[in-house]
């Protein structure tokens, strides 16, 4: 275990380009047929969005990934609390990141505040991840 977490540590950020083929494959893998994700006339003219909406749970996945990559094989995520606050649109690049807010070396339990934000610094999804480092 070489992570040496400390409270206040910012973990490495990760960028994701919300690309249209990936969105299609993601929603297909779930069986999610919601038109706002792939039907541009519907998303813009009927629902009034400025573009195709990135699926909320994909943003949630990126909150996990930024922590999970940092953990590598040193531990595992044990829980998350998050909410989707602001929409992301296909074509945007978003950034996931987080900060360690608690660490107990005895139990290996660790807590991080995490976010996915857009390039205007709006937080799309804030969350709290808990993880456990292997002894």
């Amino acid at each position: 275990m070489s992570l040496a977490p400390s409270v206040g540590l910012a973990i490495p950020e990760r960028q994701h380009l919300c690309e249209v083929v990936q969105q299609m494959l993601y929603n297909a893998s779930l069986w999610n047929g919601h038109r706002i994700h792939f039907d541009m006339p519907y998303a813009t003219e009927v629902e009034g969005y400025s573009g195709l909406v990135v699926a909320g749970p994909l943003i949630g996945d990126w909150l996990h990934q930024v922590v999970d990559e940092w953990l590598g094989d040193a531990g595992m995520i044990t829980g998350i609390e998050y909410s989707n606050r602001v929409a992301a649109f296909v074509g945007e690049t978003v950034t996931a990141g987080g900060t360690v807010t608690a660490y107990d070396p005895e139990s290996g339990e660790i807590r991080l505040e995490v976010y996915v934000k857009n390039d205007r610094d709006e937080v799309l999804a804030p969350g709290v991840v808990t993880a456990r480092l292997d002894p």
Binding site: M76, T78, G79, I80, E81, Y82, S83, R85
Partner: peptide, 12 residues
Amino acid sequence: MAGGLDITYHKP
């Protein structure tokens, strides 16, 4: 409107 999720992972 926006909702929230609270997940606990017990086993891989």
